[in-house]
Write a protein that binds this DNA or RNA. Structure first.
Lengths: 211, 211
DNA sequence: CGATTTTGTGCAACTAGTTGCACAAAATCG
DNA sequence: CGATTTTGTGCAACTAGTTGCACAAAATCG
């Protein structure tokens, strides 16, 4: 729904080829939108067919050759229209949170390592964004454009900070948890019997695949 | 990728029919996973076909009749396996952040109202989660299961708090912005000329549709 | 300078989620 | 008690994103 608009935005900021776009998405767009090179090329084709962008004149190369695109007036208008239109926020879907909730009924064996790994990933991401902030938004510059872009980076940065803190908190909680974690349904009729269900040992090697 | 596991988790916590699941997803699962009733029914069918869940014996009703499901041992094992398996966090994609970045080049006309609307939505959500916290996690209860589930709710709650603060910050920034917002490319050659581009007026009524 | 690696573009098949309905049974309403 | 609404289940078509390749041109390497 909004990949085309992400590409339009990037191209208005600076005309680019598919690969350049891919790099810019990885580098300085990733903190609010991510996309693979396959998605980008596909969408560039559609946007060109729709008359919203065009290949920069001058080069007319075939497969395996750079081709840069720029935004046409129609593209700019579409982007302005989309930006102003009301949109509902999309509901949350976070696998790690789900896994933790699942762990409450099925046992905590194994997640802790991945929590730790995620913590590292988020810490690294956070550090990277802080670099970007230092580089792209030094105290001096604060044109309206800069302030808006800085605002967006702050969101990405603060979200990473949030996850970092949350994961630390979660790990601290784990440290206080008894033994190998719970595996029963609190609402089931079984009383305070501290049973150790089979999940941890039996499922074991993780052989089972779905479908 | 993880809707089936969300359903398994919910069903382990308490066997339910499709509609009951839908309600529980809306109510107390929405802060980490969301799903429509169509998704849920479809997935219930698959899970049953795969032998991970089964209809509760006792009733054998046709279309338009309640049918409750419970998790089979194979389902519990699959859930335990999935929960423990390492998974990469999925990259961020947030339309509002993208729109703000787009607004930096294409003009801010129109977004402010939607920022305000989002702020209200997030405030309402936050209040709702605080209710849930008060109701489901009173100071007394802190079995391991509760602590894990509380941790998950805290994430949902703190994320809403984050967005609320961020949107307030964004709106404050808007208040300081000159006139009708920027609409030029900072990197383009045009100097400090405070031009007012056509985007606001020309694109206007929002007629243009893609495809 | 031929072989190998890197750069750049792209297709095809798949998975996950969304939108728009359809329809039967049960409950409610005049 | 027939008509209408609500409850509950589900199909079909679509949109968005992912995964796994293919392949040509250019650069590099022995």
């Amino acid at each position: 729904m909004s990949l085309p608009h992400a590409i339009l935005t990037a191209l208005v900021e600076k005309p680019s080829s598919g690969l350049e776009l891919t790099r810019r998405f990885d580098k300085s767009i990733a903190y609010f939108w991510s996309a693979t090179h396959q998605q980008i090329y596909r969408e560039l084709g559609k946007l060109e067919a729709d008359g919203l962008i065009r290949a920069l004149p001058g080069e007319q190369p075939a497969r395996g050759q750079k081709k840069s695109y720029e935004v046409l007036p129609a593209g700019r208008e579409e982007l302005a229209r989309w930006t102003a239109a009301a949109q509902d926020p999309k509901p949350l879907r976070d696998a790690m949170l789900l896994r933790l909730r699942a762990a409450a009924v099925v046992g905590t064996t194994g997640i802790e390592a991945d929590l730790r790994r995620h913590l590292e990933l988020h810490e690294r991401q956070l550090a990277e964004y802080e670099e970007i902030e230092k580089r792209d938004f030094p105290p001096g510059r604060d044109s309206p454009e800069d302030r808006l872009r800085h605002l967006v980076l702050r969101a990405g940065l603060d979200l990473e900070a949030f996850w970092t803190r949350w994961l630390e908190h979660a790990l601290a909680e784990f440290a206080e948890l008894p033994g190998d974690g719970p595996a029963r349904d609190t609402r089931s009729s079984s009383p305070a019997r501290p049973l150790r269900t089979g999940t941890a040992s039996s499922g074991g090697a993780g052989t089972r695949q779905r479908r």
